[in-house]
Design a protein around this nucleic acid. Sequence first.
RNA 1: CGGGGUGUAGCGCAGAUGGCAGCGCACCGCGUUUGGGACGCGGGGGUCGGCGGUUCAAGUCCGCCCACCCCGACCA
Length: 478
Amino acid sequence: MADQRLPSRSENFADWYNQVVLRAELADYAPVRGCMVIRPYGWALWENIRDTLDRRFKATGHVNAAFPLFIPMSFLEREQEHVEGFSPELAVVTIGGGQELEEPLVVRPTSETIIGHMYAKWIKSYRDLPVLINLWNSVVRWEMRTKLFLRTTEFYWQEGHTAHATAEEAEAETLQMLDIYADFAEREAAVPVIRGRKSQSEKFAGAVHSYTIEAMMGDRRALQSGTSHNLGQNFAKAFEIRYLDQNNELQYCWTTSWGLSTRFIGAIIMVHGDDQGLILPPRLAPHQVVVVPIFRSEEEKSTVMETVERLAQQLGERFRVYVDRREGLTPGFKFNDWEMRGVPLRVEIGPKDVAKGSAALARRDQPGRAGKQFVDQAGLTETVASLLDEIQASLYQRALSFRQEHTHQPEDYEAFKDVVQNGWAESWWCGDAECEAAIKEETKATIRCIPLDQPGGSGKCIRCGNEADEHAVFARAY
RNA sequence: CGGGGUGUAGCGCAGAUGGCAGCGCACCGCGUUUGGGACGCGGGGGUCGGCGGUUCAAGUCCGCCCACCCCGACCA
């Protein structure tokens, strides 16, 4: 049936994206403007992202805690740049229990300020440092324009907040967390990223400088997929986060913050998906393997289900396996349904397989009949293991090649303007904010980052022709 | 905030000139089906976004309001 197809990705990427999110049951629109419900399948994906990140945080000495949703308005106002950056998008509570509040409460847009307040209380001595706390929570930013996962009024994320004795230590932490994000993105999500520094105009409000991982989506636009900020002593000074050093001298701390949000789910969708729907990387997929039983009669059903349950049990020891026991749906329908939902590997078991001791495997990264193969039930676990690894690796490779194909080094500004409408440009940039603003004005492209990996040497700024010693990545972004 | 669009069953839509609120999909029941999006028969489901007005009569005409989506300026 025609209306069961998705809009094509190449013709209408935005429509395709919305349809995939809704039809794969990752999320749904909530009754409040800009808000969404993350459905069980989407949340399961987030849980996998969360768990794998959390392991990395714990392994580097961080601990989790919970901080309140409400923040006194006055806290926001203590760091000038911070309040200027966030005030347009704050949700503010002015009434509680039917009474006008003495001081309005902000629904946290991020927790730097309340963290600052508490750290000031807790940190007295160099012996208290470093403080390495992470929060798993949601925050609210009143955005003008929203899009499922990519930008919603409320979103889930983690925010790490650390305090250190020295600038060097804080910078090392900031970079360490950026590396953790990059490692997560590439190894778990199969999303290749560019690590880099944000320009001053794009950095976090209140940071000294911000780092980012940038990924190229299927429509060649860039998505900031995780950020790590070196806050210097800005928040320490605003909140009096001080400690006594070994010489009994009072010093301001150096702080950092870093975050990765449910927006990353949007990246996974837009990097890997195809016209059939979602393609989830095996390491994060809620169901790594789905088993579809095929039978006609009741007799066939019982022998097929016996085999299915046995194989599922066996596979379940190593993988996240789901058996599709739904009645009254044809196998064909189920094949399409699981492809829509991006399950990396499908196992089909029918009467012929029971008789022959075989199983049909279909890999999602090669849709339709092309990705099918017939294998022995003996050794199925090993076969599945290597296939999942292969799928994970090929998704990464495919995404990387795509990014390389669409990343250009234009010769001059004319070529630059052209290239940046349909891909990324890597060019020399003089570092001047006015130049940056002009480029944005003239092309809609922004500096996504100044990559940590630099070619070295120097050149001429792509726009003004002045001496430039850094390369920047320019692109239209989400 | 500007531009555009849409509000009628869970979803997608039809309902010229006002006159019994419909179709497809989905859902429920029964039967036949089932290796790439099955079919038949039967069934349930509605304050037509809201308020007001015109009229014997409003989903339809008029006014006001609200909501949501898409495209731009701000943002993870």
